[in-house]
């Protein structure tokens, strides 16, 4: 109980109904400061609904969302960000006609007036040479890295990464894995929604499996990957026998 109270982020008994369809059913999970939690699950498992409830796009039908013990269930997305809950998007979501520098200026919201922190962050993320470039001229991988740089510039306590390697090449994926491990592990609580099991095993401390809107399994990456139910969900019924 003490461990749960100290978690950076927690959802408790979250359910979501869309008409008669139950997208999430009594989901409870949490992430501690500096920990990386991966959430996996087949299509239709409720991952997108979970992301939208966590980030405040819509509210749950039942249950609570807690950030450092405070109930933020009714808070707007912008208020959640200001309190330290940031996110990236599954589909790259940038402002097409703005430069990398303008994106970072937006992300710091008037903080960092001299741009030192922004410059350092872009240097660490490998984007220092692209500061003046419009984002629509960046490669897909660099756009995803910029999204993460923007999320970090908001100084999050908890970061939600929605399929951070979606659409990336093998080399770009390796770079992203490296960034997650170097820049995030031990620093902020991270929830990664991911399909790529290679990314999950290399980055996460714990894994939670969602299936049909409910938590089907939870544990270390090794434990979860050995779970017959998970094998069945990912590899089909033959794998479970």
């Amino acid at each position: 109980m003490q461990a749960k109270q100290n978690q950076a982020f927690r959802v408790e008994g979250v359910s979501k109904m869309f008409g008669a369809f139950q997208a999430l059913n009594d989901v409870s999970l949490g992430v501690s400061h500096g920990e990386i939690l991966a959430i996996i699950g087949p299509n239709g498992a409720g991952k997108t609904t979970f992301v939208n409830i966590v980030s405040g796009v819509f509210g749950p039908s039942k249950g609570r969302v807690l950030l450092e013990g405070s109930d933020i269930t009714a808070f707007s997305p912008q208020r959640r960000t200001r309190l330290g809950l940031s996110r990236t998007f599954q589909i790259t979501s940038l402002f097409g006609d703005m430069t990398v520098a303008e994106h970072m200026q937006l992300a710091v919201r008037g903080g960092d007036p001299h741009g030192d922190e922004r410059a350092e962050l872009l240097e660490q993320m490998g984007l220092a040479g692209s500061v003046a470039r419009p984002v629509d001229t960046l490669s897909h991988g660099d756009q995803r890295i910029l999204e993460m740089a923007m999320a970090l510039a908001t100084k999050p306590k908890v970061l939600l990464l929605d399929e951070p390697t979606a659409g990336m090449s093998v080399a770009e994926t390796d770079t992203m894995i490296q960034l997650i491990c170097d820049r995030l592990r031990g620093k902020v609580g991270v929830i990664v929604i991911e399909h790529d099991m290679n990314v999950v095993t290399q980055t996460s401390d714990r894994v939670t499996v969602l299936a049909a809107g409910a938590v089907a399994a939870s544990g270390s990456p090794e434990e979860v990957l050995r779970d017959p139910l998970v094998k069945e969900l990912y590899l089909g019924s033959a794998a479970g026998h």
Binding site: Q78, T81, F89, S93, F95, D97, E102, L106, R109
Partner: peptide, 24 residues
């Protein structure tokens, strides 16, 4: 100005702007 940059951001992608902490 930086304020107008926020207006452009909200105009292009209000959800993204909200997630950056702006009241779109």
């Amino acid at each position: 100005t930086s304020t107008w940059r926020i207006v452009r951001a909200v105009q292009q992608n209000p959800v993204r702007a909200q997630v950056l902490g702006y009241n779109a």
